[in-house]
Write a protein that binds this DNA or RNA. Sequence first.
DNA 1: ACAAATGTTGAGTTGATACTCAACACAATG
DNA 2: CATTGTGTTGAGTATCAACTCAACATTTGT
Lengths: 113, 113
Amino acid sequence: MKTTFGETLKQVRRDKSISQRELADKVGVDFSYISKIENDRLPPPSAETIIKICQILDIPNEVLLARSGKVSSEIKEVIGSSVGAIRFLNEAQDMKLSDDDWLRLSDMLKQLK
Amino acid sequence: MKTTFGETLKQVRRDKSISQRELADKVGVDFSYISKIENDRLPPPSAETIIKICQILDIPNEVLLARSGKVSSEIKEVIGSSVGAIRFLNEAQDMKLSDDDWLRLSDMLKQLK
DNA sequence: ACAAATGTTGAGTTGATACTCAACACAATG
DNA sequence: CATTGTGTTGAGTATCAACTCAACATTTGT
């Protein structure tokens, strides 16, 4: 069973020995909000807040973003303005790609230019 | 200058000789809402409503989605749950791909399996 | 055991999103 | 020219996202 956003956040934060209050202060939200999120009492924060959290915790953005269902505004911009990108992603969706497949696509991407 | 969402919708709807009321009824929204959207007095509807509109007008979803900046929930799900997909799209974003590039990637996608 | 630090809970707030409803204007057809 | 179909406008509403604030509970270090 896949771990939730809250479980992942709680684990990472504890590993780094940071309190909810300290994290919350640095991110710029109330500490009680962090608590609720860690216990999955509230849905994950906005993509922007998730990214801040990852920066404070010193982990790659994708770790939490991928457990959140949220899409960063940068990525939204790429998709939301390109017919080609939307078509591509619709196809990708149908094929249920693995992380390995995506890695291969990243390689192809580099060869493209 | 790129055409707006409203301009595109208005043009397509007129080409198909459908009234705002008929479209609105079939989509399930108020006709006055369609009017405001066509004149860009309100931002584009939700991704789901846009998709319905495209189905009624019998055009591919991407046509309107790409002018809306919105991301469909299907695509959100692909991205928002895969570390690999997020990484890939972050890289893609940096490279400023053209629609042609995306087409090439779609081809590579098919070869992948 | 006590205080200080840390975590949890309920209720409420703020702003944005995605619309509706009623009134009116215009156009065109018989 | 009156009716019918079509489009526009202003104001209002419902729901949701993303939080805050205050109160209380639990854990931890000495």
